[in-house]
Design a protein around this nucleic acid. Sequence first.
DNA 1: CTAAGTGCAAAAAGTTTGCATTCCG
DNA 2: CGGAATGCAAACTTTTTGCACTTAG
Lengths: 164, 164
Amino acid sequence: MSPAARKAPKKEDRSDQLEEARRLWRAFVEQRGLNSSKTRDAVVDVFFETTAHATLQDLFDAARKRQTGVSFATVYRTMRLLDEAGLADARNFGEGKSTLYEVAAGRAHHDHLICEACGKIVEFVDEDVETLQDQIARRYGFSLLRHRHELYGLCATCHPRGGA
Amino acid sequence: MSPAARKAPKKEDRSDQLEEARRLWRAFVEQRGLNSSKTRDAVVDVFFETTAHATLQDLFDAARKRQTGVSFATVYRTMRLLDEAGLADARNFGEGKSTLYEVAAGRAHHDHLICEACGKIVEFVDEDVETLQDQIARRYGFSLLRHRHELYGLCATCHPRGGA
DNA sequence: CTAAGTGCAAAAAGTTTGCATTCCG
DNA sequence: CGGAATGCAAACTTTTTGCACTTAG
């Protein structure tokens, strides 16, 4: 990757996405007849600016840093709204672990690779798998609504003879 | 399926499997230096005779029917042992739902189709998907340890215009 | 005996919810 | 004003664990 290539290119996309997400949120709020709220908007913003997968606790902590007085309950209720709005996806990787929220607005469907050593989460898309899933569902007479496909292993860095 | 085909064929397999599972359990108990216990063996038997995916509560209820005095804690601890022994697989379908245990002894790897309407769980195997998974993991530099692949939808019976 | 197994009840961990209060329109 | 939004603390659900007592070897 050339030095120049690292600079501008993605940045606009990102802030466009952010803007689009906020627009969708406002639309949802209106369409649903909700009041506007400074506290909730702070949580929404914190979430939209999130790059990684975040737990309620993460979001709560982050929100507190910019808006004191946010309660866990509000973070919880806000994330539920975002989920209903289709702007957030709630994911559960592994047994007792907390639910992770990821930004869904304007993002394509994808699945996950999870490193069991360092916890790194990589998103992937594979059309062939998607196609096969449809075939499998049909084979058993199911109509497919959604799926969960997670691959657990060790990332390059965590391999016994891992690169890096 | 012919009337005759429904009868004998599978039965022997099933009791063979059961016998094999019990054998593996005894081996595990010995190898691990555990004591034998009537209570725990009752739980183990109840589990091995289970056909569907069962929660701890299911197993607890079932065990109580034949052996009064079994506690939830013992069911829990027994299932943990079976899991460690590789004789039980703990699965988690969906958010807050309880862990489901399925018999693993002598069974091939498989994934699941889950009906969101009636909760029916169907197991499936698809070699092509398995192959693709390996390729995907490699593409991202991961070495694959395990995966979770669940397809959620509506089974034939629950379709809006469902068969049956 | 000594270590393993068990029941009971309480602890954890993560989510949800009831309620009185405050805020938005 | 009247319905929304919020904070707080308590309720819940499911999974784990501490501890005193019982049992197998």
